[in-house]
Nucleic acid binder design. Structure first.
Length: 505
RNA sequence: GCGCUAAUAGUCUAGUGGCUAUGACUUCGGCCUUCCAAGUCGACGACCCGGGUUCAAUUCCCGGUUGGCGCACCA
């Protein structure tokens, strides 16, 4: 058991306790698709709620929208996804290795095959006698592999549609409506959460690489001449973040730099201050979710890792048991998307100032992977002892179930009173769970395993004076409080306004 | 997508060309029980899918699906 990899333990408890399971499992499943069960859904909802509150609602100039998952081909023609996601692949006839045709041509003949048709590319392979780089044998005819899911809209069949490969495009194509709503004033942000789809060649690692995944994104539009954030966006200059520069990657690095946002700014490590604004929110979010700061960093992506139009991409990477994984991408997309859609749709996306100056906004995009963040939380909150028992040390703010109400025993009216308390907690808005089966110790363990932070126990003293105990998951200690204080005390504990130890006397 | 490998209750696992396919834990019900999974009685629950060989396939063969590892891919 202890030899198991951490991810296997996470999968095991996910299946057993209703967090996550494979989609269509009884029919053999489908690679890259997972369903969220009761606890997984609650946990995911809490993650999204946190993002909505802290990234969107707490800021004046950011609003959330909700766009279609399926959109017509013209959108992706304009966005570039149809070309960029459509890779011609060729295969060696002997060793069966797969290669991207355009890259082979580029490597072997030093010709850019970008934009050429698949037939033209195969012709170039023949003309230049390009062979398999591994075993020098003949290559098969190329075939296209498109990472987007295609379907048809309507009954006639002539109107192609695609599932969106990122949430962002909804926002760019609605830009005129959105600027009107924002009364043509920069800066502003448009947020969106929802599913995106990519037909990945090889999904791996549970919910780390999925074919259907959920994103939380903001497109932050600003005047490119105005690199510093303006009100109401303020930067927590003293906040320290972990950062990996281009230079460090060239030399080889072991530990990221710990820099204050002010230092990052002074050293010109990022192209604009909006990135810093989101670095701060992302760092605070992960810490609030129970991830230690030493376990994640922002890495300035190398030029070959970013699209040509990027003004700089900064991945938030986490040190997970399955390797260093990107769970958040911060992309400075400049005006690439607006420019493309403006041209393709023949509409103007510029914003005019009163002095007559016109500007096409630039955009910074913090793109948060919900599933990857959720997996990170599961892994970083997972605890086990030498008996092999495990539990999740979820911070209250994301615990799927917030409180369990347990009668010490079922008999003597303890169960009835406990159930009443449970109903009252539900009425007060807590996500409360009632459990009366078996023994009290077993029920504590069951509650711990799924990370319930507090258990309310109803005992014989409760029958006399309506008092009850609150048990803290992490210390296993208990305090006794009167019924009338339960709501407030629990609320203070959940909000971390008061530490559990302070209630002990 | 390629190569290697695996697939038996919710989880982990034993085993077999042939009666009714092990065991543990979990779950549910009962008894016991005045605070941290270990007492007791009982119950539910499985051979990944399709084809082939065979009198008979969970077992052997072929194909597929899914997972793991490696390669490739990841604008």
């Amino acid at each position: 058991m202890t030899e198991d990899r951490l991810i296997d333990k996470i999968i095991d408890v996910s299946l057993r306790r209703g967090f996550i399971c494979p989609t269509a499992e009884i029919y053999g499943g489908a690679g890259g698709f997972y369903d969220y069960g009761p606890l997984g859904t609650l946990l995911k909802q809490k993650i999204i709620d946190y993002w909505r509150q802290n990234f969107v609602l707490d800021t004046d100039n950011i609003f959330e929208v909700s766009g279609s998952l399926l959109m017509p081909e013209s959108v992706f023609q304009a966005s570039g996804h149809l070309d960029a996601f459509d890779d011609p692949l060729t295969q060696c006839s002997v060793c069966n290795s797969m290669f991207r045709t355009d890259q082979l041509i580029n490597d072997a003949a030093n010709i850019s095959a970008e934009g050429l048709s698949i037939e033209e590319q195969d012709k170039l392979i023949q003309e230049h006698n390009v062979k398999c780089p591994k075993c020098n044998e003949d290559l098969s005819k190329s075939r296209n592999f498109n990472l987007m899911f295609k379907t048809e809209i309507g009954p006639s069949g002539g109107y192609a549609g695609y599932l969106r490969p990122e949430t962002a495009q909804n926002i760019f194509i609605n830009f005129k409506r959105l600027t009107a709503f924002m009364r043509n004033k920069l800066p502003f942000g448009i947020a969106q959460t929802g599913f995106s789809f990519r037909n990945e060649i090889s999904p791996r690692n549970f919910i780390i690489r999925l074919r259907q995944f959920e994103q939380m994104e903001i497109e932050m539009f600003f005047d490119p001449d105005d690199k510093e954030v303006s009100s109401p966006f303020e930067i927590a200059e003293d906040l320290k973040i972990n950062f990996v520069t281009h230079e460090m990657q060239e030399k080889g690095w072991e530990k990221p730099l710990s820099l204050s946002l002010q230092e990052v700014k002074q050293q010109n490590l990022v192209p604009n201050d909006y990135l810093l604004y989101f670095f701060a929110l992302e760092t605070e979010m992960l810490i609030d979710f129970g991830v230690k700061q030493e376990d994640f960093w922002f890495r300035h992506m190398l030029p070959h890792e970013t699209p040509h139009y990027s003004g700089g991409n900064f991945d938030l990477e986490v040190n997970l048991s399955v390797g260093h994984k990107e769970i958040i991408g911060n992309a400075y997309r400049r005006d690439y998307d607006l420019k493309k859609h403006s041209k393709a749709s023949n509409s103007s996306f510029t914003i005019a100032y009163s002095d007559g100056r016109k500007v096409l906004p630039h955009v910074v995009e913090p793109s948060l992977g919900v599933d990857r963040i959720l997996y990170t939380v599961l892994e970083k909150c997972y605890r086990e002892d030498d008996r092999g028992w495990s539990w999740f040390q979820f911070p209250s703010i994301i615990a799927p179930l917030e409180v369990a109400v347990l009668p010490l025993m079922k008999k003597d009216g303890l169960a009835n009173l406990a159930y009443e308390v449970h109903r009252e907690l539900k009425n007060s808005g807590y996500i409360s769970f009632y459990d009366e089966s078996g023994k009290i110790g077993k029920r504590y363990a069951r509650a711990d395993e799924i990370g319930i932070p507090y258990c309310i126990t109803i005992d014989y003293e409760s029958l006399k004076d309506s008092s009850m105990t609150i048990r803290d998951r992490d210390s296993m200690k208990q305090i006794r409080i009167p019924l009338e204080d339960l709501d407030i005390t629990l609320g203070e504990l959940m909000d971390s306004e008061v530490e559990f130890e302070e209630y002990e006397q």
